[in-house]
């Protein structure tokens, strides 16, 4: 699960997580071959300004689906 707040500054970043993920997925689908995925403008649009908060969203890997079968 995405951490509720940014580890460094404490801003609540999980609020925008679901919108961020769906917008990135949407962009991935429409990506041309060989084109690099860029998401900086999405983060700007969602009001995630500082680089400490941006790395929270950028580097997050959702593990719930991986762990769920072993419950």
């Amino acid at each position: 699960m995405i951490p509720v707040r940014c580890f460094t500054c404490g801003k609540v970043i999980s609020e925008v997580w679901e919108e961020y993920r769906s917008r990135v997925e949407e962009r991935k689908k429409n990506l041309q071959k060989g084109e690099v995925l860029k998401v900086g403008d999405i983060l700007d649009d969602l009001g995630v300004e500082r680089y400490c908060c941006r790395r929270m969203l950028l580097s997050h890997v959702e593990l719930v689906d991986v762990l769920a079968p072993y419950q």
Binding site: M1, I2, S14, E15, V16, W17, E18, E19, V64, Q71
Partner: peptide, 8 residues
């Protein structure tokens, strides 16, 4: 919209 936990 803060996700707390995902339930299967």
């Amino acid at each position: 919209n803060i996700p707390i936990v995902e339930l299967k």
